[in-house]
């Protein structure tokens, strides 16, 4: 019963995140909202798995947590460089600085 209430609360929080994603005003606000939405989705998957007595949902939650992270990094990289082919760091410069 408590878990069902928790799932409902998470859905409310997710709806608020969608509101921020629609309102913006900048791209960064939208991506922040989507990233936070993803974290709440992970929690919702875990809670719903317990509500239905199927903890296999947790595997999906793990995968979703990883996808959420990669999505945010890829979006940020794209907005910064306007391309996904750009290396995130320059290996030659890194070696020169560290070595």
């Amino acid at each position: 019963m408590l878990l069902v209430a928790g799932a409902a609360g998470l859905l409310i929080a997710m709806a608020m995140m969608i509101a921020r994603a629609i309102m913006g005003p900048s791209h960064y606000d939208r991506i922040l909202a989507v990233n936070s939405f993803g974290t709440k989705t992970v929690l919702l998957l875990a809670v719903v798995g317990f509500v239905f007595g199927r903890p296999a949902f947790l595997d999906i939650a793990i995968v979703y947590a990883l996808i959420n992270f990669v999505t945010t990094i890829a979006l940020m990289k794209f907005f910064r460089y306007r391309s996904l082919a750009q290396p995130l760091c320059n290996p030659v410069a890194e070696e020169a600085r560290d070595g």
């Binding site: 019963m1 408590l2 878990l3 209430a5 928790g6 609360g9 998470l10 409310i12 929080a13 997710m14 608020m16 995140m17 509101a19 921020r20 922040l32 909202a33 936070s36 709440k40 929690l43 809670v47």
Partner: peptide, 20 residues
Amino acid sequence: GGGLVIVGVALSVLGAVGVL
């Protein structure tokens, strides 16, 4: 455990309020 879940969800909702 159920109580902790509820508190955690309440914090999530508060975070969403803050984002708005």
